[in-house]
């Protein structure tokens, strides 16, 4: 009998993420992109500190665990030594846009030929739901105060994709979401495009992925897609913010 669907061998066993979390879904999208393009044997991930590090036991490609926020600098070192390999960071918003903004920005400015994947769930998940620089206005966190994020105190959500798109050396910048099947397909295309531009044209590429964190959104997992649609997308618009000319 012909198999019509099989488990991706790059994903081993079960994972420890919360129900409805965006990480395992995004892990699978990346694993599928690697497998379908025969890139798995060339992949090296610079992994952040945060919920993302729960992927380490169950994804089966090379991983380097980085100090918090420094994945773009670590990936720079990796890529300079392994120039033909597919190097990408996998970071949360707190890691890439908060503590690691300097490393992110300057890797983009130098045009380092690797891909940064920033998983934006508007929260510090691993430590239990503290405010991030991407937390929505009015969103309640364990550090926002009872009325939620107030611009008078903590300003507005950081929109990193738009910032990186202004950098001359950035080759491809996109923001995608994974809250519906349609968005999952778009996200997969964007990641594949980012990887391909890295491998074939030596471009620095950046993909911000809006991910659901029902635990810290304080919604049921099945309500998280609607939350994303109603509250997150108006603040973080989707799309390709920078592409190589004509593509």
């Amino acid at each position: 009998m012909k198999a019509v669907y099989e488990r991706n061998p790059l994903l081993m066993g079960s994972n420890k993420f919360c129900p409805g979390c965006g990480h395992p879904l995004l892990n699978k999208i990346i694993a599928d992109v690697l497998a379908e393009n025969n890139w798995a044997g060339d992949a090296i991930t610079a992994l952040c500190i945060g919920c993302a590090l729960n992927m380490t036991p169950y994804v089966d490609w090379d991983l380097v665990q980085c100090p918090h926020g420094r994945a773009a600098a670590v990936a720079t070192g990796i890529k300079h030594v392994q120039k033909s390999k597919l190097v990408f960071t996998y970071q949360g918003d707190g890691d890439a846009a908060g503590i690691g903004l300097t490393e992110t920005f300057h890797a983009a400015s130098r045009g380092e030929p690797f891909t940064q994947i920033m998983v934006n769930n508007q929260i510090y998940g691993m430590t239990g739901g503290q405010s991030s620089c991407t937390t929505l206005i009015g969103q309640k966190t364990t550090t926002s105060g009872p009325s939620g994020r107030d611009p008078a105190h903590t300003g507005y959500p950081t929109k990193l994709a738009e910032v990186i798109a202004m950098v001359d050396a950035a080759g491809y910048v996109a923001r995608v979401s994974i809250h519906t099947p349609k968005h999952i397909r778009q996200a997969k295309k964007a990641i594949e495009k980012a990887f391909r531009l890295q491998m074939e044209e030596n471009k620095y590429t950046f993909v911000e992925v809006l991910a659901m964190c029902p635990t810290n959104f304080h919604v049921e997992p099945w309500d998280a897609p609607a939350y994303t649609e109603e509250k997150v997308l108006p603040v973080f618009p989707l799309g390709e913010f920078k592409t190589p000319e004509g593509r």
């Binding site: 420094r70 600098a73 720079t76 070192g77 990796i78 300079h80 300097t102 490393e103 920005f105 300057h106």
Partner: peptide, 19 residues
């Protein structure tokens, strides 16, 4: 590098990749 933090983390990446 953009800073000493960047420099030493680039060293870490290079060392991790066999450099």
């Amino acid at each position: 590098a953009e800073s000493e933090i960047g420099a030493i983390n680039m060293v870490m990446g290079a060392a991790a990749a066999g450099g």
